[in-house]
């Protein structure tokens, strides 16, 4: 019901304004969306921009998970790691990832993964994955993943740990068979939140100068050219992809943590 009202109000004002550079008609935006493979403003299609953004996010996010989960398990379980990492993490946590973007751009310039491997003139996707962007995505994804993992480990019931030890578990098995599965629902929550933040951060990073692809870039470029229909279509796509990513992790999470929802 509410979406219909929003669309109706939008259409009403679009007709009133009668200026596609200010507010396009609903139909114009839809006709952009139904042609996702058409080149836009000589920068590539929606599909290409989304693939570029998504590749950046997925790579940075995997990096965040690969570091955030093990570190969270250790910090949650061992006082030594807690003492070692907690101060620095508490210090960095309030620093919003978007604040890092200019710094990361300055440090990493437009250096890409392809450059890292010496392929400077590649057309592959790796030529579009800038290290600076990876860094900010990693930063944005890391904290929710790490903090939720720590929380998960800290809330493992003592009873389960004692049971496992009395049934012959050593420290390694305890981690694998009790602490990890018991914290898994919490870890997956962290992944979902982290992925959401990564997706927001990348859009912001792509809007800054120096970028020449990605859905965030397309937004800022269509803004400069006053192509409002492309701009709004991009916004809709960002929302849709974000929701899809979140839904994917949620399906995975629900499947692995039925026990937690049903635990009395």
């Amino acid at each position: 019901m509410i979406p219909i009202i929003i669309i109706a109000v939008w259409e009403f004002f679009a007709i009133q304004a009668n200026n596609p550079a200010l507010l396009p008609r609903v139909g114009d935006v839809i006709s952009r969306l139904v042609h996702p493979f058409t080149d836009l403003l000589n920068t590539g299609s929606f599909v290409r921009h989304i693939i570029v953004s998504a590749s950046r996010v997925v790579l940075g996010f995997i990096l965040a998970a690969v570091i955030g989960i093990p570190l969270g398990l250790l910090v949650g379980r061992y006082l030594l790691f807690h003492r070692l990492f907690s101060p620095i993490i508490e210090l960095l946590r309030p620093l919003c990832p978007i604040a890092w973007i200019p710094f990361a751009m300055a440090i990493f310039k437009t250096y890409t993964i392809a450059d890292m491997f010496g392929a400077h003139y590649t057309t592959s996707i790796f030529g579009q994955i800038q290290l600076g962007m990876l860094y900010v995505i990693f930063y944005g994804g890391f904290f929710p993943i790490f903090l939720n993992t720590v929380h998960g480990v800290k809330s493992v019931k003592h009873l389960y740990i004692e049971s496992a030890l009395l049934l012959g578990a050593d420290q390694k098995k305890l981690f694998k068979k009790v602490i990890f599965p018991s914290s898994l629902p919490s870890i997956l929550t962290g992944l979902r939140v982290g992925l959401g933040i990564s997706w927001m951060v990348i859009i912001a990073a792509e809007m800054l100068p120096g970028s020449d692809a990605g859905i965030g870039y397309l937004i800022i470029f269509s803004y400069e050219l006053a192509e409002m229909d492309i701009l709004i279509a991009s916004m809709i796509l960002i929302g849709a992809v974000g929701a899809l990513l979140s839904y994917g992790v949620k399906v995975l999470a629900d499947r692995t943590s039925i026990w937690q929802a049903k635990e009395r």
């Binding site: 009873l159 004692e162 068979k177 009790v178 018991s182 026990w259 937690q260």
Partner: peptide, 23 residues
């Protein structure tokens, strides 16, 4: 234990097997 101490993420047989898995 007096309280319910089964691992809630393992099914019955994997709970019963736990110590054998450790071995």
């Amino acid at each position: 234990f007096q309280q319910y101490s089964l691992f809630p993420w393992c099914n019955v047989i994997d709970n019963v097997c736990f110590s054998l898995e450790m071995k």
